[in-house]
Amino acid sequence: MGDERPIRESDLDLEFTREVRAEPGGTQLDLCIACGRCTASCPVQAQNASFNPRRIVRMAVLGMAEDVLGSDFVWLCAGCYACRERCPQGVLVTDLMVALKNIAVRRGIVHPSYRAQIAELRKFGRLYEVEAFNKKRSKLGLPPLEDRPEHATSLFESTGLDDLMDGPGEEPR
């Protein structure tokens, strides 16, 4: 980390910490003893030092909203659950990463990769246009499938995902 500087009280947003704690992935946040097993277990950290779960957990505890939510590292979790499996304190580290991303989205920051996937789901109800593959499927003796966009769009509308995604559309820096 080349950008080390002391953390000032003015950097901290305790409202953010409360928001994290209220998420299903944040309920065990305060039990973290900073032992670093999550970081030692993390396959992403092994290849890319900018993703450091222990550091992210500390930042969430301290309320470093700006540094976490505006970062690109918050999107780097591979969701492998090795950290959650090995945490001696039962901190739901993987779920915490989901919580942080969800909070970022609520503040208008959506990674373009997810925007693209949601756009596909809106078009086809799945991540791909399955009907385009029906010819190939029938050659293999596989049954045809239908694109049913409404199976996604109706739920996106009623759960408020559409409103979430219609925000200012900021991208992580």
């Binding site: 989205v105 997810y114 991540l127 049913r148 759960t159």
Partner: peptide, 27 residues
């Protein structure tokens, strides 16, 4: 038995909205 009307499991949406993903899975 093929599950007629099945759609995405919700996983790709989890990072954006856990709530929407849960509803997609539940469907």
């Amino acid at each position: 038995e093929d599950l007629e009307g099945a759609a995405c499991c919700g996983y790709p949406v989890q990072s954006v909205s856990r709530e929407t993903a849960l509803v997609m899975a539940t469907r």
